[in-house]
Design a protein around this nucleic acid. Structure first.
Lengths: 148, 148
DNA sequence: GGAGAATGGTCAAGCCGCTTGTCTACCCGG
DNA sequence: CCGGGTAGACAAGCGGCTTGACCATTCTCC
């Protein structure tokens, strides 16, 4: 995964490794408690505001097409993580809303990822890790206000 | 992409954003100079040691199956980025070797990614970025010695 | 208030990247 | 020289996404 020729590894490789670690953790979480859920499902769940959200607005937040999103949503609905109800204010639209089980899943994700971060912090030092996280946060775009 | 409910964004989201930025840069590079090459192709190229390498050993380094790898290698071979020659020491095996054009591509990647990193450093501060990168490096596994 | 455009969502087909399974060619240890 | 292991190719299939077409409803504006 690193570069045998040149000295320092490519950023992309470093990022990929961290992603890989995180994904492994999420898969373990799925195996243990939420069978069938993939990384994108957890991300989707974490995007849902309390009052529910329309599919179209989720596409903007998630960067997926509405078709892809609908497809990703199907297992979530089937598993009882979200419920899809008609939007009272627009008969074309449907609201996607977290269920209790969905909230359970998002809480579990936070918990699990927090554990990974604690582990990382222990490995590289609390302060250094804090800096790294802050840097990544700074590099990320401003919060996407999906919940208005 | 961020979380509207809870405070701090998930690590996975932060990492994904950085990855996304990097990938965008690589795509731009492909459009400009190396049409058809995707992120995995650049990574593959950067894995190749000077003397060439066998497909099977690359699978270990890349984490892909040999079939996936062979598939990813095809466009590289077609584009003249690598050449595949029989291994003199084992008639079953074939050596994948960088061509000049391949070396050109890897150099371009390094250049381009270095530019992104300079940009990031300017945005968050040289020292903070240096810490972040060092942390990511520490978290990555020891160098995979693909070139023996 | 009615026609036309815009929006929310679904259905269907297809592509791409990867997987598993199977096969041949070759190496190596007895 | 024979059996097991390894290098790699071939084929089929699948998951996740895309584009394209379509229907239902709502908005806009004359």
């Amino acid at each position: 995964m690193s570069d045998p020729v040149n000295g320092e590894p490519l950023v992309v490789v470093l990022l990929e490794h961290a992603m890989h670690r995180v994904r492994a953790e999420l898969y373990a979480l799925s195996d243990a408690s939420f069978p069938g859920l993939r990384t994108r499902h957890y991300r989707l769940l974490s995007l849902l505001p309390p009052g529910g959200e329309r599919l179209t607005r989720l596409t903007a937040a998630s960067g997926l097409t509405k078709q892809a999103l609908a497809q990703a949503l199907a297992p979530l609905q089937a598993g009882g993580y979200v419920e899809v109800v008609p939007d009272p204010s627009d008969r074309r639209a449907r609201l996607v809303r977290l269920t209790d089980r969905g909230r359970e899943a998002t809480a579990a994700v936070r918990h699990r990822l927090a554990a990974v971060e604690r582990e990382w912090a222990a490995q590289v030092g609390e302060e250094r890790y804090a800096v790294a996280r802050a840097v990544l946060t700074d590099l990320a775009p401003g919060p996407v206000t999906v919940g208005e």
